[in-house]
Design a protein around this nucleic acid. Structure first.
Lengths: 224, 224
DNA sequence: GATTGTGCTGACCGATCGGTCAATATACGT
DNA sequence: ACGTATATTGACCGATCGGTCAGCACAATC
C-alpha cells in the first residue's frame, strides 16, 4: 500500500509488531493470559506500554492473535495421509514432525499448553471444530490400517494423544526435563535420541509392520 | 498441644484450612501463580479475603503449601522396585498408578503443570534434588533389566518421561481431550481403555516379556 | 462482671492492572 | 512552507492487586 520509502531506517510496522509478538509470546507462555501483564511485555519488547496497545488494540486481541499465529504454524505441517499410505513412515513422520515443531516454537507450544490448562476459554471452538475433525479423519484412516492387518487394533484416538503428549512433553516440561537431566537445555543429540526412542516404542508397540525394507533401515535403532 | 475443647461446633481450624486449600488449588491450577488472585480464591472458598491471609499468611505461603501437599501425595505412591522385580508388572503398575493419581488429584496435577510451565521457580530445588535422584535410581534398575535381556535397550530416562507424559496428558489437557471427544469428562470406561492401551503399547514397544499371567488384576483400584 | 486471648473482617494502603487520551513528533503530498 | 495523516508516549483513569491493621465478637478464666 504505502510506498517503501524509508528514508530513515525506521523499524517498519511489521518488524515492530513481530517484536511485540515475540515478547508477548514469552510472557503469556510463562504466566498464562491472566498472569501476564502488558507492562512486562512492553519492557521485554523495549517499548512503552502505550505503544503495545497502539499496535495491538488490547490485551485480549494480542493474545488471540498469538493463538491464531500458533494454529497457523501448526496447520502448515499437517500433511495429508490416505489409507494406502504406509503406517510406519506416517507415524514416524508424525512423531518427528511434532518433535521439530516443539523445538521450533517452544514459546508457542507453551502458550497453547497454558491456554488448555486454563480450560481453553479462547480455544473451545477450535478444539470442538477444526481439531476434532482432524482427529476424526486421521482416526478413521488408522482404523483402516488396523482392519487391513497393518498394525494392532489400538484405539486411534489414544494413539494420537500418545504421540501428542510424548512429543510435547519435552518442550512444555522443559524446566522439569532439564532440571532432572541436570542440563540447561536439550542437545541435538538428545532430541535425536528421544525421537528414535519414541519411534521405536510406538511403532513396535502398535505392531506396525515395517514396509519393504528400503535402504533406510535404521528407523528403529535403539542405541544412542 | 491445645485441648480439643470445641464446646460449640465451630468449623474447626482444620476444616477451614482444607476448604481454603481446595479452593486455592482450583484457582492456582487454572491461572498459575501470578494469574491467581486472593479475592477469587476467597470467593471460591466463601470467605472474606482477609480470612485467607489470616490462615495462610501470604499468597506465596499458600502456594508453596499446595505444592508441598501435592509432592507428598506423589511420594505416597512411589513404590520400591529392585532389579529382581518383574518389568512387566512394575511398568504396568507405574502406568496405572499414574493414571489413577491424575484422576484423583486433577487440580493438583494441573498446579504442578502450571508451575513447570512458568519455569518451576518454586520447584527447581525439588526437580534437581529429590526427583532427579528418584529418576536416576529407577533408571539404573531399568538399565539392569535391559542388560539382563528382560527388555529392549531403551534409554530409561526417555521411558520414564514417556510414561509421565502419556498419563499426565489426560488430566492436564482434559479441556482438549474432552473438547475433541465431544464429552464433558472421561468416563471410567475411557480410563480403563486408555490404561490398557498404554500398557499394551509401552510394554510391547519396550520388548517387555510378559510374566506368568497372574489372576491378580485389580492391583490399582481407584476407590476412595 | 471484668479481663484476656483468639477468631474474624471491614476498611484501608501503596502498587499495579488494562486501557484512554491529549499532546507531541515525524513523514509525506502538495 | 504548509497541511494532513500517522507514530509515539507521558500522564492519567477506575479497578484490582497483595497485604496490614484496628476493632468487633465471643468464649474461657478469674
Amino acid at each position: 500500500m504505502t510506498a517503501v520509502s524509508v528514508t530513515h531506517e525506521s523499524p517498519s510496522r511489521e518488524r515492530i509488531e513481530t517484536n511485540i509478538l515475540v515478547a508477548a509470546e514469552q510472557v503469556f507462555s510463562q504466566h498464562g493470559y491472566r498472569g501476564a501483564s502488558l507492562q512486562v511485555i512492553a519492557d521485554q519488547a523495549g517499548l512503552p506500554k502505550a505503544n503495545i496497545l497502539y499496535y495491538m488494540g488490547s490485551k485480549q486481541a494480542l493474545y488471540v492473535r498469538l493463538l491464531n499465529r500458533m494454529m497457523r504454524r501448526w496447520n502448515e505441517v499437517l500433511e495429508d495421509i490416505t489409507p494406502d499410505s504406509d503406517p510406519a513412515t506416517v507415524l514416524s513422520d508424525f512423531i518427528r514432525t511434532k518433535m521439530v515443531l516443539g523445538q521450533r516454537y517452544p514459546e508457542g507450544s507453551k502458550l497453547f499448553a497454558a491456554e488448555i490448562l486454563a480450560g481453553a476459554p479462547f480455544l473451545s471452538d477450535y478444539l470442538a471444530g477444526e481439531l476434532r475433525d482432524w482427529v476424526a479423519s486421521r482416526a478413521a484412516i488408522i482404523r483402516q490400517w488396523s482392519d487391513q492387518g497393518k498394525m494392532d487394533a489400538v484405539d486411534p484416538r489414544w494413539l494420537i494423544f500418545l504421540i501428542w503428549s510424548a512429543t510435547q512433553h519435552y518442550t512444555e516440561y522443559s524446566a522439569q526435563v532439564s532440571g532432572i537431566l541436570g542440563r540447561d537445555a536439550l542437545t541435538d543429540d538428545d532430541l535425536e535420541s528421544i525421537s528414535t526412542f519414541l519411534e521405536h516404542v510406538i511403532l513396535k508397540g502398535c505392531g506396525v509392520t515395517l514396509p519393504a525394507p528400503k535402504p533406510n533401515t535404521d528407523a528403529c535403532r535403539v542405541d544412542k
